[in-house]
């Protein structure tokens, strides 16, 4: 019984939240890694693209709510999501047209493009804050739990409860659908294959008659979709605040680098590596150990490797380990 209780506690406080967070990071890192693979720079505006897309979705959600529209037990934000993606895609395409295209034509160095993306970051960050403000927003509605701790306890008869919030379930389901679609697109469609070819060997792709402008356009649209979905899921699960989204840049890049920059499969693995490490390291193991160890050995302290303040440090340490020991990442991205 104690082992079951320990397991449920572990599932409840580690596996469930880390899986949801990992899925959100994976989607964000996929966006960053696609930009890196196709456009060949680290996009510092990735976090703010997520914030921008989420903001549009929130505004749309509020409007739908004011009309009395609802999505039953699902959050209204999911109805608003397509609009958020469309507006963000338009914004990114426009940014590419007026900003990035110029540097691409010049074949500018990646570092220049990173600085340019800083400028874009400022603009998107400013726009988001001007439109919706810098404060925290909660926009989740619909059912709150798939299963509550109390329901689980009565069902299982255990002392410990397992709660799965609706937002966590939605996150995982959505992420699976999106990732499955993305891999189908990249591996099975002509356009998707041409994107991979372009990322692999730009000159040969051009020789083969692949239209770079088309590839870049499709990339931005997909990046807008991934960023908006990742942002909305994160916002539903936690809350929306522009600065928090900016700070997601570090875990997102850590995830992308762990997996190997430019490698989509790696980005997904990296997202979960970072999320699980973060939760495992900042989780207080006292309760789990209390069930597993005999009473006289049970720990008095929290048994927490790092306080939750140091969440960001976990991403950073992972990043450092990867840079030190395997700069191309787990899945051999475009190397250093």
């Amino acid at each position: 019984m104690d082992i079951l209780n320990a397991l449920v506690t572990f599932l409840n406080f580690v596996v469930v939240p880390a899986t949801a967070y990992g899925a959100q990071l994976a989607l964000g890192a996929l966006g960053a890694t696609l930009v890196y693979g196709i456009l060949r720079f680290s996009n510092f505006a990735q976090g703010d693209t997520m914030a921008f897309g989420t903001m549009i979705t929130i505004l749309m959600t509020w409007w739908l709510q004011s009309l009395g529209v609802s999505f039953g037990p699902l959050p209204t934000a999911l109805l608003a999501l397509p609009v958020g993606i469309a507006v963000t895609a338009l914004f990114l395409l426009m940014t590419d047209r007026v900003v990035y295209r110029f540097y691409r034509a010049q074949r500018a160095a990646p570092t220049i493009l990173v600085i340019v993306s800083l400028g874009v970051m400022f603009v998107m960050n400013g726009l988001t804050r001007i439109i919706i403000g810098a404060e925290e927003q909660n926009f989740a509605d619909g059912a709150r739990f798939l299963i509550t701790a109390g329901e689980f306890k009565t069902w299982s008869g255990l002392d410990e409860g397992l709660a799965i919030r609706a937002s966590q379930a939605i996150t995982v389901v959505t992420a699976i659908i999106v990732v499955a679609w993305l891999f189908w697109f990249l591996n099975k469609t002509r356009t998707g294959k041409s994107m991979r070819a372009f990322s692999d060997n730009e000159d040969l792709a051009l020789l083969s008659g692949i239209n770079p402008d088309h590839v870049v356009r499709i990339t931005w649209i997909i990046v807008a979709a991934l960023a908006t979905i990742a942002g909305v899921l994160y916002g539903l699960d936690k809350s929306f605040k522009p600065f928090t989204y900016f700070q997601l840049l570090l875990p997102i890049f850590a995830a992308a680098v762990v997996g190997g920059l430019g490698n989509p499969l790696g980005a997904i693995a990296g997202g979960f590596v970072v999320a699980y490490s973060e939760v495992l390291v900042t989780y207080a193991w006292k309760k789990v150990l209390g069930y597993l160890l005999p009473a006289d050995l049970a720990p008095d302290s929290l048994v927490q490797l790092l306080s939750t303040d140091y969440k960001l440090a976990v991403s950073f340490i992972i990043l450092i380990i990867v840079l030190l020991f395997m700069p191309t990442g787990l899945f051999k991205g475009k190397s250093g």
Binding site: N201, D203, L207
Partner: peptide, 11 residues
């Protein structure tokens, strides 16, 4: 057929 980088290695 270029002399180098003439295939898509990851495909």
């Amino acid at each position: 057929v270029p002399q180098t980088s003439n295939i898509f290695t990851s495909m």
